[in-house]
Simulated assay, not measured.
Amino acid sequence: MTADDPRLTARHVKGHVPVRIVMSQSLNLPEEANLWNVHDAYTIVATQRGARRDLQKKLALKGVEVVEFDMLNPRDVMSYCYDRGYLSVLWECGGTLAASAISASVIHKVYAFLAPKIIGGVNAPTPVGELGMNQMTQAIDLIDVSYEQIDRDMLMSGFIQPIPDLSPVIPSVDEMPSVDPEVSPYETNIISFYKTWDTFGAFSNFSPHPIHMPDENGDYFTWPTVEHYYQAHKFIGVDDPQAREIVQEIKLAKSPEEAARIGRTRQREFQELVRPDWDSIKIEVMYRATKRKFSTYSHLTDMLLSTAGSVLVEASPHDLFWGGGREGEGMNYLGRLLMQLRSEILGTIQTAVEVGEPA
Score class of each variant (00 low, 15 high):
V77Y: 02
V77H: 00
M78D: 03
S79T: 11
S79Y: 04
Y80P: 00
C81S: 06
Y82P: 00
D83Q: 10
D83T: 08
G85S: 12
G85E: 08
Y86I: 09
Y86C: 06
S88D: 10
S88E: 13
S88K: 10
V89K: 01
V89W: 03
V89G: 04
L90N: 11
L90W: 09
L90A: 12
E92A: 05
E92F: 05
E92R: 03
C93T: 06
C93R: 00
G95D: 07
G95P: 02
T96M: 08
T96L: 02
T96A: 12
L97E: 01
A99W: 02
A99N: 00
S100N: 09
S100V: 01
S100E: 03
S100C: 11
I102W: 01
I102M: 12
S103Q: 11
S103N: 10
S103R: 10
A104H: 04
S105Y: 06
S105M: 09
V106F: 08
I107Y: 05
I107E: 06
H108N: 15
H108F: 08
H108T: 12
H108C: 13
K109R: 15
K109A: 07
V110R: 04
V110Q: 11
V110D: 08
Y111G: 03
Y111V: 07
Y111W: 13
A112F: 13
A112M: 15
A112S: 15
F113V: 09
F113P: 00
F113E: 10
F113M: 15
F113A: 09
L114T: 11
L114V: 14
A115Y: 13
A115P: 04
A115D: 11
P116R: 12
P116Y: 12
P116D: 11
K117L: 15
I118A: 07
I118E: 08
I119D: 12
I119L: 13
I119Y: 12
I119Q: 14
I119K: 12
G120R: 01
G120S: 06
G121R: 09
G121L: 14
G121D: 10
V122P: 01
V122S: 14
N123Q: 11
N123D: 14
N123I: 01
A124G: 06
P125G: 13
T126Q: 09
T126N: 10
T126Y: 01
G129Q: 02
E130P: 00
E130S: 06
L131W: 02
L131T: 01
L131N: 00
G132L: 05
G132K: 02
G132F: 00
G132D: 04
